[in-house]
């Protein structure tokens, strides 16, 4: 669970561990796991070409990109699920993350599956310029079809940290938005605010608990209860396990 037994602090959790935690054993079926970035705007800084940077993150994490998408069962309920990984370049969203999430939503739309997206991201990926920004629109467009046309059910889970372009698109668009305890959630991060206003940001003013009181999320759910809460929510929305019915 990656929770400190002494103090209850939530350590970051890799996307693979998160999938293991949420999806029933033996049911995970990944999608588009061979998709890699093309370096579409040829972003080379002198120190390190963007492609080399991706290479080194691939070696470090064993992942091809900052999100894993696929289908599986959650307490027997078939779901489409996407999990971001903060260890891969700060979970930043470029063309690949945008395309994989869009395809996942389109798949869930066609198969009438409930959708879970677990967010962990520093925002849009600078190294792909405006194309990263446009992924926000692309994903929101797919969600429009999924949520408004097909009236299906999407739960977004905000883990620490969820910021920038991810917050300002699919992060805050869940039919139900769940935050993890003490997660750092923001549109503009602490440094950005401090730079713009020349004022220090008080500790905890961008923590899930504080923002919860401002009405930004539905429940805050501890990690060990999350799977149970999700399966209850799905059943309340008439998505039932395979074996029953």
């Amino acid at each position: 669970m990656n929770i400190c037994e002494q103090c209850g602090y939530y350590l970051k959790i890799s996307s693979s561990d998160r999938i293991e935690l949420s999806v029933d054993p033996g049911t995970w079926d990944p999608m588009d796991d061979g998709m890699v970035s093309l370096d579409p705007i040829e972003f080379h800084s002198e120190e390190e070409p963007y492609k080399d940077r991706i290479d080194s993150y691939q070696k470090k994490t064993g992942l091809t990109e900052a999100v894993q998408t696929g289908t599986g069962q959650l307490n027997g309920i078939p779901v489409a699920i996407g999990v971001m990984d903060f260890q891969f370049m700060g979970g930043s969203m470029g063309s690949v993350v945008g395309e994989k999430i869009t395809r996942l939503i389109e798949y869930a739309t066609n198969k009438l599956l409930p959708l879970i997206l677990v967010c962990a991201s520093g925002g849009a990926r600078m190294q792909e310029g405006s194309l990263s920004l446009m992924q926000m629109a692309k994903i929101s467009s797919a969600l429009y079809d999924y949520q408004s046309n097909k009236k299906l059910f999407y739960v977004s889970i905000l883990t620490s940290p969820t910021t920038g372009g991810v917050t300002a698109s699919f992060g805050m668009l869940g039919d139900i938005i769940i935050a993890e305890p003490n997660a750092y959630i923001a549109f503009a991060g602490k440094r950005v605010i401090e730079q713009t206003l020349n004022k220090t940001v008080p500790e905890g003013s961008q923590a899930a608990e504080y923002l919860f009181h401002k009405g930004l999320f539905d429940p805050i759910v501890p990690r060990n209860l999350l799977k149970g809460v999700l399966s209850e929510l799905f059943q309340l929305h008439a998505f039932f396990p395979f074996n029953k019915n």
Binding site: D32, G34, M35, V36, S37, L38, D39, P40, I41, G94, S95, V96, G98, E99, T102, E128, L131, M134, Q135, A137, K138, S141
Partner: peptide
């Protein structure tokens, strides 16, 4: 917007 992005498979 659907067509925007640069990736390979």
């Amino acid at each position: 917007f659907r067509s925007l992005g640069g990736f390979q498979e």
